[in-house]
Design a protein around this nucleic acid. Structure first.
Lengths: 223, 223
DNA sequence: AACTGTGAAAGTGTTCACAGCC
DNA sequence: GGCTGTGAACACTTTCACAGTT
């Protein structure tokens, strides 16, 4: 395990499984803050986050040492450390491409600002949608993607286009210099190795649940 | 590795990492079908699915042996085997709870039927929403949840309620006998061990991307 | 010659259990 | 006494490399 800075951003050497759980911890901590709780333990925080206490402690140990033995963690301070580790200090500017049903819902999702994100632009290819307003923004034409990315300083693009257009849009997004993509289109995107893509696919999630549902029935039948 | 049936549902002994990728393979195979391709290789299918060829072959080996050495895989047949393994043979009936922006988008998501799912009911707590129509269904009151689950034979519930209500709704969903939940509310749900929950949280995904974005900047600064 | 299927190796991730500190 | 932080054990996943088959 490489470098470790205390309190400030640490960075390399944080396992990606740990990174994927930090948002859960942060969410739980912010709930505790909202409820006025000032101190917590690995058992309580783990329960709220849906993981085991050992896992939580191990995860935090990759970021540094934030608790007090025999006592627990300061809720506010720990939330700050995790937010720092996630890079939520600086604001991240987002563009959403594809303002259909889902894009609309994503645009109106509240809680971006609170989490350090700012929706800076909405883009669509359809003349019927371009020019309409959503979430306080005027939808621009996707042809202007490169300009919009530069003008707004977009660092993350959310793709909510139809599957058929997703790859073509992704290519342009990458060409425009964006390195972080959140893809809602049901397609595996082909991108250079230095670009991060995270995919969210409702259909896939349902299919995984269907598998477990079936496994359950079969197990029951074998009695 | 335990039991293995060929072509028919196999079941236990399939690693969950493999199960989570089967939907990608199925998606890619259906694209190939649509394009009229009848035979494929592990290299091609892996590329379309966004994984490595060795991983694909290993994954398929848990389900059985479906290819021909020196030749490749029959696209149609393989799609059928995977669909069978995922339990998409029988139709899964879904209820969506929380018909706000996101619930609306989820209700209108096309492609449920094609993937073996049927949206059987929409539920909401708000009097303003109950009684309205969406996706060809009349929104019912969430108080009738238990009745609706029984009446419609719901096996999967999609939760798109505000975070504050998610746990209470989940408790009732579980009490009604549903074992599979897809949770879009930004909350870790507390459920019995025999209930499967999969969570999708846009905020968390963005935070993970933000982390990578920051890691990139820091790496660049260290030169 | 081409491409699958799979043991074995390497790599990651999780859990345990306890030493260390308050 | 209570709770964190962590090496060491264990479990799971991925990748490699090649034997087996058409």
């Amino acid at each position: 395990m490489a470098e470790q800075v205390i309190g400030e951003v640490s960075v390399p050497g944080i396992p990606s499984a740990t990174v994927a759980r930090l948002p859960f911890y942060l969410r739980a901590l912010r709930d505790l803050v909202a409820r006025g709780v000032t101190t917590t333990s690995s058992v309580e925080l783990a329960e709220l986050s849906g993981v085991g206490p050992a896992q939580l402690r191990k995860d935090l140990s990759f970021l540094g040492s934030f608790g007090t033995r025999g006592v627990g963690y300061d809720v506010d301070a720990l939330a700050g450390y995790i937010a720092g580790a996630l890079g939520l200090e600086d604001e991240h500017r987002i563009a959403i491409v594809g303002i259909g049903n889902l894009g609309h819902a994503l645009a109106n999702y509240s809680g971006y600002e609170q989490r350090g994100f700012h929706v800076a632009a909405l883009l669509d290819a359809s003349p019927e949608v371009v020019g309409t307003r959503a979430a306080g923004l005027v939808v621009e034409h996707v042809d202007a993607l490169e300009d919009v990315v530069a003008r707004e300083g977009v660092s993350i693009v959310v793709l909510a286009t139809p599957a058929a257009h997703a790859q073509a849009v992704a290519d342009r997004v990458v060409a425009a210099g964006v390195k972080e993509i959140l893809n809602f289109a049901p397609r595996a995107l082909q991108v250079p190795a230095d670009v991060d893509v995270r995919g969210v696919d409702v259909g896939s999630e349902l299919q995984i649940l269907a598998f477990h549902s079936q496994a359950r029935s079969l197990a029951a039948a074998n009695d």
